[in-house]
Design a protein around this nucleic acid. Structure first.
Length: 353
DNA sequence: TCTGGGGTCCTAGGACCC
DNA sequence: TCTGGGGTCCTAGGACCC
């Protein structure tokens, strides 16, 4: 039988900050945008459980958090530190599994089918992994264990914080079916709304719907919904994941129509992106500019170019795209620059000519 | 009331090629 | 009156996840 674990770091960014300053553990600590005395525009990235007890949570506007807890510790993101801690956790995890699939900065799948053969062994292994991450990386985590990625993931949600949950293959449906459809991994706000309108409230309701009916409404995604709600998920844990694109985004302190201000920001984003791209030794063949206007409509414009590793090409292309596409009737709230079509250029010097 | 910054994957139409 | 078919790339948009 397959045994898959999902290891998910608890309140990761805030937990990282607590390593730097242990006294934060007893205080509400919020990582995210600068609240600027309640007028900040960003959101809460994550916060520790002291802050959560006050009602603060991820994705909440930072201004709302500030209203609840002006006295809380507000910290900016220290992304490179979080990356280092993430790598530390990953290497610890690999000692136990050989291979690991990194899903995001704070989540890792491992397939331990060959290491454990029953429930007790799986739990013991999970406890060892958890203890090692806690004592060596100083980070709390939760672990979900099951026979599929989907159920391991959902079990982990229920294990949080700082817990381990095992859901065997035989108990998967029993575990999943009472949960609201919105909790099914892959079902977001839009899909949940449509499903609820159709009268399906729980994952169990969804599992019993005829596939053809789901396909009528959702096309091929209907098959996916049918399979997932029935705990059918053959996806394997895969180790080598290739990065597909890298981007940077920036929200203006105040919406703007001023070309020179926007172009200046595009150049800054491009320069910072260029550094990342060079550091990772990537060439790219496509540049995408994203514009979010004051009314929250979002438009993306991309351009393919001759593959290059030259960081300067990013700003040049992005500014061209901007000038050709910007809608000058609306103020701009946010801009983003992204490069894709990435290729490792370590052995491709010609791209620089 | 206010709504970030990283990403991924999917779809769909049109261009283009054979 | 008739207007192939298949494959790939490009571009834009949308949904989703953390």
């Amino acid at each position: 039988m397959r045994t898959i674990m999902l290891i998910d770091m608890d309140y990761f960014f805030a937990a990282c900050e607590e390593i730097k300053r242990p006294e934060l553990k007893s205080r509400p600590t919020i990582v995210g945008a600068d609240p600027k005395g309640g007028r900040g525009r960003g959101v809460v990235m994550t916060c520790n459980y002291v802050a959560r007890k006050l009602g603060i949570h991820s994705a909440m506007p930072i201004s709302s958090a500030y209203k609840i807890a002006p006295e809380a510790e507000y910290l900016p993101m220290d992304y490179s530190y979080y990356e280092r801690k993430s790598n530390e956790a990953l290497s610890i995890i690999k000692r136990f599994s050989g291979a690991a699939e990194q899903v995001s900065i704070d989540e890792f799948f491992i397939d331990v089918s060959l290491k454990v053969s029953n429930h007790d062994e799986a739990l013991r292994l999970a406890e060892k992994v958890k203890a090692a991450i806690s004592s060596e990386a100083m980070l709390p985590c939760s672990i979900g264990i099951s026979s599929t990625k989907l159920v391991a993931k959902m079990a982990c949600e229920k294990a949080k914080p700082n817990g381990i949950k095992f859901v065997g293959e035989a108990e998967s449906k029993e575990f999943m079916w009472p949960l609201p459809v919105g909790e099914l991994y892959g079902v977001g706000a839009k899909t949940r709304e449509r499903l609820e309108k159709m009268g399906y409230k729980t994952i169990g309701d969804l599992s019993k719907v005829n596939v053809m009916a789901l396909m009528d409404e959702f096309d091929s995604f209907g098959i996916e919904l049918h399979n997932l709600s029935n705990c059918i998920d053959p996806r394997e844990v895969v180790e080598n994941y290739e990065i597909k694109s890298i981007g940077k985004e920036y929200t203006f302190g105040k919406d703007t129509k001023d070309d020179s201000e926007v172009i200046k920001s595009i150049k800054e984003l491009s320069a910072s992106l260029g550094k990342d791209v060079s550091a990772k030794k990537f060439s790219f063949k496509s540049v995408t500019l994203k514009l979010r206007y004051m009314d929250f409509t979002e438009h993306m414009h991309s351009r393919s170019i001759r593959p290059t590793g030259l960081p300067g090409e990013i700003a040049k292309t992005a500014v061209e795209i901007y000038l050709e596409n910007v809608d000058r009737t609306k103020k701009i709230r946010k801009i983003g620059v992204r490069v894709s079509g990435l290729q490792d250029y370590k052995n491709q010097k010609l791209l620089f000519n």
